[in-house]
Design a protein around this nucleic acid. Sequence first.
RNA 1: GUCCCCAUCGUCUAGUCGGCCUAGGACACCGCCCUUUCACGGCGGCAACACCGGUUCGAAUCCGGUUGGGGAUGCCA
Length: 467
Amino acid sequence: MSKVVTRFAPSPTGLMHLGNVRTAMLNWMFARKMGGKFLLRFEDTDQSRSEQQYIDALKEDMLWLGLQWDDEPLFQSAHAEQHREALDKLAETNLAYPCFCSESQLNLDRKLATSRGLPPRYNGRCRELSNDERQAKLDAGETHTWRLAVHADSGEVTVPDLLRDNVVFLRKDLDDPVVVRSDGTFTFLLPNAIDDAVDGITHVLRGDDHLTNSAYQVWMLESLGYTAPVCLHHGLLLGEDGAKLSKRTGSHSVADLRAEGLFPEALQQAMVRLGHPNIPEDALSIEALLEHTDIEHLSTSSVRWSNEAMWRWHTKFLYAKPASELAPLLRQSLAQHDIDIDETQALALAEILGGNLNRMEDVLNFKRLLDASETISDENVQVLKEAGAVFFNHALSTAKATGGTDWKAWTNALKEISGAKGKGLFMPLRIALTGQAHGPEMSKVVVFLGADGIQTRLNQVLGLLDD
RNA sequence: GUCCCCAUCGUCUAGUCGGCCUAGGACACCGCCCUUUCACGGCGGCAACACCGGUUCGAAUCCGGUUGGGGAUGCCA
């Protein structure tokens, strides 16, 4: 059995999107799983729309996602020769033919067919031209496209598919697809298939929206004497609303997600778990995912994307970050809002905040830990008012007496003097010091702030209550 | 219209040959416990075989049809 070779073949005309991510990951995973190769091929035949910046961005996103490709990236444009040869070879045996029908003629044909209740397919006018007629038109320089003579004959095309029963199409139900436009450029159908053949691709994982295309490509490759790659047509990735993935329904580009600070692991988790059953919750690395997935049993029904699930994974990964890794991220997030802290401070902050942030930007909720003048929300101020100035005067005096950095000692002393206890004791202090009703362990917070920090904030609260 | 694909809890799915399925798991959600907060963790709960026929002693599972979604029928990829 020959080695498995898969590929991800984006056209460099845009950024990597969620649909791309799924296809790329599945092809990568299948290759890894089977001990094969995973190739990256840029389908850059549309030179006018292809841009170097997208090639670079696509590569960067792939690496960010942990999808390293084997060998050097391939470029479809480098195979122009083979595409031409393939067409010539098909033309020789009349399996491809020039079509001189005009756009308006074809529209008319379609209307006519539909009105008669027939499928609106190409009626084969130019397929039935004699060789002489054909040559005469070509010599006269008439504009033409090239079509594949699929519909012409009886017989069937079988698309081999590992995920389902092989799909059988009757040739008469298929059309004669255009493979060369009137401007002489190829449509996606031919180069895509030829490249797979010459690149030695053995397996193609793609959405089932390609099923009919696969039929055309299988027919073409087999006509040329190639063995068509085995397909794994999986169900489509849908948006959150169950409709097709579109920009509006959350089809973010990977670039957007990265800009939002998403961890690649979170995207991996959310993506791979779609269409796969019962992957243990603790399969957190891509290797672990690989181990617990069976690509050959990937679901053939469509699946829904969930941003919420992805961000939940992100939070899980964030919680698990040790302070040493969290610290630089904290600095970075704060720096984005023009707050600069040094490394030591960042590490100290990371140690108390770890496990309290769902997204990196949540650190902004705790600005009061860094700056005593940071305002407190009205709702929380209300809690401070209910505690009252008397309470905070006691708090200040006991803080001074005990130093305040021993949470237990301080609060015990305060409890005795003020008579406050439980939530009524802890909550006002939490809000006064952190600005938030929820957050990290107070015993750590007081150490982080130090005696001065505590007193500054208590004084600031007292000033607030005076107004 | 014609052809092709798909259809189990809110979501992702288990369900090999029909009986062990009054349909299992995970996530989400809800409740309780733990916790000075949040989270984690523990326990419990809610919740689905799209519909209609047929075959059968017995169907989520097989067959037919219907409905719904998707794709093709594009000089998009």
